[in-house]
Write a protein that binds this DNA or RNA. Structure first.
Lengths: 240, 240
DNA sequence: ACAAAAGTGTTTTAGGTACACCCATGT
DNA sequence: ACATGGGTGTACCTAAAACACTTTTGT
């Protein structure tokens, strides 16, 4: 902050949000559609939801605003996990062109502060996003995105893995209120990247007082019906 | 990035560096002196080393430049751990006044990307920083700093604790090439915030192939001389 | 001799891992 | 009856925790 002898860059600050949902089988990420045209003609691709920072707004507020505009969810818990500001994040001319058309000025470096959020991906939520505008994509199924957004998603995945290690409550943000043991197990497997022994897993949740078994069971499945559980957040916070 | 109907903030992006050193007993942080004047007259306080981003420079480069200017160390390993962009980080009028004098323009929001670095705090390094300009302060001994720099240091401390959990090599960046078991233990205790059993600690390092005992011992100490150890980085990376 | 820090083993406890079969339900 | 996923118990192994005394060196 001291030295003014070198010209400052014409910088811009944005936020980008990696919103994770779990559909019972796969992890999904909310992406928005982008279209434009360049030398190669018209194109349609996807990017993370994001925005530049507005006047009188701080980072957390900007991230919250982006998600509220897109999903209608207010006060979604967002966690900042990394800033991206390498020069080669605008190495693709298509991205620079797209940015400068949108902003009507020359862009040298755009630093983005990345957030992740975890949501319960139920039918109700799926309806609130306009399919012409946004989409819940399976994480292993995402093509090349604008800017360095593929990298940002990878880093977000690492971040939730780290976070889940010292705060197991995090997983339950992705699950419905009532969930089965195998949903919880499959989600843990996806987050940790390794399979878990079924018996050991049952043993473990049985001794966690904050995972409470319900009397209710699945209905109409073509196999033995699974028991539902719920997460007791109060019991969890008391003990940890 | 899509919506341009709301005015964008007159933003600035900076980097701030939290450089940790270990003097054998305490953890220390490198701080630079700041002086100025306001309603209350002249003042002298301290802040983290930092800088705005220059033209043709990305975040990592800016952070590296700051530290090279200050300490002369090139290619110091810096880890980005968090961005700070809340509005109340400029809630102290003294800080805003200081900023605007330095930059000669109105500042609304300054987002800073914070990095930490770990260095071997030996006599040679202590000499390279000009005491009139900067100082290695004991971490438990730091007064109120400019902006939210006290908060940034707290977050940096949490970050290295997290990092040390899944990368024990990190501790050795803070220790001299030859170190004693008790130096390593005391450093671990400071990082983890709890005391460690001496016998269990010896047992543990004895079975770590990458902590190799040397024949050399301390000289001229008024008690039983401690054995020196060194960290074998190659052996560490091979096994993990 | 004494002060000050270094170094050394054993037992207990808890948690993790490995492993194979029967159960409930719909088609 | 069969296909599909749900649910259960025991033995073993490893890692962490608790705990007190002897050794070396300088003054």
């Amino acid at each position: 902050m001291e030295n003014m002898s070198t010209p400052l860059a014409n910088n811009h600050i944005s936020v980008d949000c990696v919103v994770f949902g779990f559909d019972g089988t796969d992890l999904r990420v909310l992406l928005v559609k982008r279209s434009g045209s360049d030398d190669g003609g018209d194109y349609n691709d996807m990017k993370l939801p994001g925005s530049l920072i507005y006047r009188d707004e701080d980072l957390d507020e900007a991230a919250g605003r982006v998600l509220e505009e897109l999903t209608g969810i207010k006060d979604l818990s967002l966690t900042q996990f990394k800033a991206f500001g390498s020069k080669d994040r605008t190495s693709n001319p298509r991205d620079v062109l797209w940015l400068e058309r949108a902003q009507k000025e020359h862009v040298e470096l755009i630093v983005t502060i990345a957030y992740f959020a975890l949501v319960k991906l139920d039918k109700a939520l799926e309806k609130t996003v306009d399919p012409a505008q946004a989409q819940w994509c399976r994480i292993d199924d995402i093509g090349p995105l604008a800017f360095d957004h593929n990298l940002i998603i990878e880093e977000a995945r690492k971040a939730i893995r780290r976070e889940a290690d010292n705060n197991r409550a995090l997983l339950f943000d992705l699950l419905p209120k009532k969930f089965t043991a195998s949903q919880l197990r499959k989600l843990s497997e996806i987050i940790n990247g390794k399979t878990l022994d079924v018996r050991n897993f049952h043993k473990k949740i049985a001794q966690m007082p904050y995972i409470v078994p319900l009397d209710e069971k699945q209905q109409g499945v073509s196999h033995r019906a699974a028991r539902f559980y719920r997460f007791d957040r109060k019991a969890y916070t008391v003990m940890r």
